[in-house]
Amino acid sequence: MPKLELNGVVKRFGERTVCDGISLTVEEGQMVCLIGASGSGKSTLLRCINLLEPIEDGAIYLDGEDISIPGLNLQSVRARIGIVFQSFNLFPHMTALENVMLAPRRVRGLTRAELQPEVETLFARFGLADRMHNYPDQLSGGQQQRVAIVRALAMRPEVMLFDEITSALDPQLVGEVLDVLLMLKRQGMTMVMATHEMGFAREAADKVCFLDGGRIIEEGAPEVLFDHPAQPATQAFLARALK
């Protein structure tokens, strides 16, 4: 049974169809990269998986369980699926530590003291041990994004979604964030990421999907999709992206 399965997911904003029947399977421990031009539906798809956007049609399964049933308890599902955004979205009025502890305290019902060892380990593992008590505006973009990743991980999610998490970073900071993803992959985390980092997708992904106009035009192993794309739209996109 796949860890995550999408079946004909449709998402519309008014008249505009952003996801037009997307089906996708993600196995446990796999890293799937979504590529495609801006506006092709990658980000919206990730937000649908996390139930931040209700879907119009289709279904989303987590461990075989339909999580897209209207009226389902959204909170319990969201707690199992972490998402990291392009713009970090850290809470500016809290320190890095408080950012990370908020959801486990409120949702998992743990105290600060109970969380301390676990959270400290996370900060240390992501090279942020000396940054715990800084506010977001005292951190670099790369550090902020790593805190955002730690914040999502502190909920012990089963699946992580990454929405172009390096797009807002200075080029020299992209590497430190991508390294974190490789580390998570080694630890067996199931991940779906929307990205413009073609080099990274080719290196790290188990599967790459090319989206265009809200549809998955082509999917496959990275070496196949990047080196021998079958569809003309994929070829055109890659020609532009890899130029």
Binding site: N50, L74, G82, F85, N89, A103, V107, M155
Partner: peptide, 15 residues
């Protein structure tokens, strides 16, 4: 986006 980030962590609307 602040709301979205908080909701995505599993917090309730009230929280």
């Amino acid at each position: 986006s602040q709301r979205a980030a908080a909701l995505s962590l599993g917090l309730s609307e009230r929280q």
